[in-house]
């Protein structure tokens, strides 16, 4: 595993599209715009990002948005609640597929 998930990947992320700079530039400009304050505050956007980071299980994103959430004024209780929302949706999504199971089982006469 040692060649995967190196810490310095996070700080080097800005150069990931060096071989395709125009597309990279478009992505990072758009990415930056997404996190500008709008109808949602910067803190709220960071908490969403933090929750999604856990769902997609991205260690880079978890590190980045733990720090960003704190910097934008979130506290650990708010961050944990955001994580619980992600957990609820992820586990709920597993469970709700049980409806598919039940339907199929009924068709099979179980």
């Amino acid at each position: 595993m040692s060649e995967y998930y190196k810490h310095e990947h996070l700080t080097g992320f800005g150069g990931v599209a060096a071989a395709s700079p125009e597309l990279g530039k478009k992505f990072f400009e758009w990415y930056g715009a997404v996190f500008e304050p709008g109808a949602l505050t910067e803190r709220e956007k960071c908490l969403i990002a933090l929750a999604v980071a856990h769902t997609v299980q991205c260690p880079y994103c978890i590190e980045a948005y733990t720090g960003e959430s704190l910097a934008k004024g979130a506290d650990l209780e708010q961050m944990t609640e955001a994580l619980m929302v992600a957990t609820a949706i992820r586990s709920g999504a597993t469970l709700v597929h049980g409806m598919q199971m039940i339907e199929k089982a009924k068709k099979l006469g179980a």
Partner: peptide
């Protein structure tokens, strides 16, 4: 006066003021 409760930097003073 807000200062971070930990080893990180505050960010978005104006945005924080609105929320506070």
């Amino acid at each position: 006066v807000h200062n971070p409760v930990g080893a990180f930097l505050p960010s978005g003073q104006a945005s924080m003021e609105k929320e506070w």
